[in-house]
Design a protein around this nucleic acid. Structure first.
Lengths: 230, 230
DNA sequence: CCGCTTCTTGCGTGTCACGCAATTTTGCGT
DNA sequence: ACGCAAAATTGCGTGACACGCAAGAAGCGG
């Protein structure tokens, strides 16, 4: 095993909060049972996000979400501990995909190039263009009660990206095995994700309909420049 | 106004949640009133942290905290919206000091050197050595309910550090005014703080009583190395 | 068709955030 | 020193919520 992914083997530092039926134990679609579980979970999550956007975060009750998903209020809590968790569940799932986005970059591409491209692609392929996603982003960034869940999204992104970076480092740089590859991957992922967050926040505070992409590219360029030329 | 601090002028992206008497409107100690407010706030915060450490996070009620601070349970909610906010309030205050820690570095020191030294100093001067702080750190890192508040601590650190970095950039690098200094400061601060978090997390998951400092220095070195030599 | 596992549901309970209004405390001008 | 206005503390009530528990229902293997 040696190093592994360097992310998922720690004793639960930022794990989820629910353990009930909502726990996704395997991507394998065992049977009708698993599919129904996933469907209910997604139904609840979508309903939560939709209602929160329509009425405002404080004007939606767990009861409403459960009703919209056509399950009992008690069942809601079998899947999610809080309505905030339900609202951000889709975001967490999406965040986990950034690793594959990096893995899809051509192998001959430089590491930094690949990472930057993956991040840009991830944020663009996301629904970061339509005003609906803009509003949901605003909600997540402003509401104090969603801060913890947003942090969970970011953590997921960081871990997924770190895992993919570690693979790429291991594949390309078996030569310089002196440094701790896992550490380097984690640091790199953390720095890039943090930079992306800066870009998103700045994009959010300057209302103008300027695209996110240039801000993202600028910020990433600044990261590289700042560390290279003190 | 032009650039300002680049952190505190945005329309509340990650602001606090309480607006009552607990709001610290100015550092100016106007009179007995302000001092008493601060005292009560600190009393509540200390009691919250102490009780949470003694009994465990779930075995402490807001009623207990209020009793320990000798105020009404209702008064507690005038200062803090949740007990988690109270527990982390001291951490937030401390996080805000990292800016001054950087400002105290000698001006002739290089920017990167100064930042790294400031971060190391901040984490060392903190109570990150005694086992009590270790336990509180564990609590903050593990409990899902404290994640949001921990995020607030990190955000505060990032903003404070970014402000100080911006000053240093403005003071030293008036020559290359082409780049957006505020952006560079924010990106740099975000990357460094994120890296520090990686170090702290790794230090936390590897039980051994190894000091935090070398891990921190390693991680920061990796950050610089990773961006300089792809 | 049967038994086992797993999910759903209803109910009860303890905790919590917060609006509201009465009461007390504090600051300050005179 | 006195009294008034501003502000903080407190008690009460309410709506919401997380979760344990146990009974019922539904998938699933033999």
């Amino acid at each position: 095993m040696s190093t592994g992914t360097g992310a998922a083997e720690v004793p639960e530092v930022g794990g989820p909060a629910t353990q009930g039926p909502g726990a996704v134990e395997s991507t394998h679609a065992h049977g009708l049972r698993e599919r129904k579980k996933l469907a209910t979970r997604e139904e609840l999550s979508r309903a939560a996000l939709r209602l929160a956007m329509e009425r405002g975060l404080d004007n939606v009750l767990v009861e409403d979400i459960a009703a919209a998903a056509e399950v009992s209020p008690r069942t809601f809590n079998n899947y999610f501990a809080t309505k905030y968790e339900a609202i951000c569940a889709l975001g967490v799932e999406r965040a986990a995909q950034i690793g594959d986005t990096l893995r899809r970059r051509p192998p001959e591409e430089g590491l930094w190039q690949a990472i930057a491209a993956a991040v840009v692609t991830h944020y663009e392929s996301g629904h970061f263009c339509d005003p609906a996603a803009m509003a949901s982003l605003k909600m997540v960034l402003t509401s104090p009660q969603l801060r913890g869940e947003h942090q969970r999204i970011v953590t997921t992104m960081r871990e997924a990206l770190a895992a993919a970076i570690a693979e790429r480092l291991a594949a390309a740089g078996a030569a310089c095995a002196e440094v701790d590859l896992a550490l380097r991957a984690e640091v790199l992922a953390a720095a890039v994700i943090a930079t992306a967050q800066v870009a998103v926040r700045r994009w959010f505070v300057v209302r103008p309909a300027t695209a996110l992409r240039p801000l993202l590219e600028d910020a990433l360029a600044q990261l590289q420049a700042a560390l290279r030329a003190p």
